[in-house]
Nucleic acid binder design. Structure first.
Lengths: 145, 145
DNA sequence: TATTGTTATACTCTATAACTATA
DNA sequence: TATAGTTATAGAGTATAACAATA
């Protein structure tokens, strides 16, 4: 198997795991990612749109649904009356934390069979690839999820 | 950066590249994947649904759109009058081939900076991970795309 | 009865364009 | 004028459930 095929297959594998874990927590993959981003702290809508690589209008619907499900809410910003900040509710924080634990465990299982040497080689190679191409924000966004 | 974070970031990076290349060829990522799968030969609808990890009903819409765009069409199966086979048109075959060349080049650039030693280590590690978890078909499906 | 594929319906996610309110 | 966020509309992709035709 050549490296390009391996990369595509790996991506499919990880997307599948991400989708499965999300579903297990009764979240869509995008919702799960939103919660994980917000775990780092509140974010403005435009900020989130940039992180997700989508238009601002897409965030409106995303937050509407998260809000309807009681996972997040919008809070006004004191100094700028146009701006809103997406913030986790307590339920949202719990859901995000639980998801994070679960997805981390599942993905760790993926590399758990490698020798520690091979694991470190892999980690280093991936880190180098990401470092060199960090221009692309895209899906995958910030932090871990 | 730990290996789990690296895996998620890499997945985001590759999804972004896949989306960008698809768009460059005026395809959605799912359409691009459909064309790539069909490049290996005609497939039944149920077969495709299984490869894509979706319900059969989803394939109906997918093929409707591909057919409307002149990229693929359904051909009857002689021995089973219930069955249909999704087949590429000439335009679809050309689009699939062009996409394949492009995505392969883009993804090769991703690992092009690695030393040949590091590249081989990476390839081997990914191949082992995929081998051990090949149970999951999921998105990523068959072959390269 | 089981399988193949479709239709109908509903939901999530996304883009574009036009809009409001505030800076 | 520029920015933050929304609304309206359209389309892709998906699931579920019910259905038709054939095996």
């Amino acid at each position: 198997m050549d490296v390009v095929t391996a990369l595509i297959r790996l991506t499919g594998l990880i997307q599948g795991i991400y989708a499965r874990v999300s579903e297990r927590h009764d979240l869509t993959p995008v919702q799960a990612k939103l919660l994980c981003v917000l775990l780092d702290g509140p974010r403005g809508m435009a900020d989130l749109a940039q992180i997700f690589g989508v238009e601002r209008a897409a965030l409106t619907g995303l937050m509407d649904r998260a809000e309807k499900r009681g996972l997040a809410h919008r809070v006004p910003v004191p100094r700028d009356r146009r701006a809103l900040q997406a913030t986790l509710t307590d339920a949202g924080r719990e859901a995000a934390a639980a998801f994070h634990v679960d997805i981390t465990a599942e993905l760790n299982r993926l590399t758990g069979d490698l020798t520690s040497d091979a694991g470190e080689h892999l980690r280093a190679a991936l880190a180098e690839i990401i470092e060199r191409h960090r221009a692309a924000p895209g899906p995958g966004g910030i932090g871990c999820c």
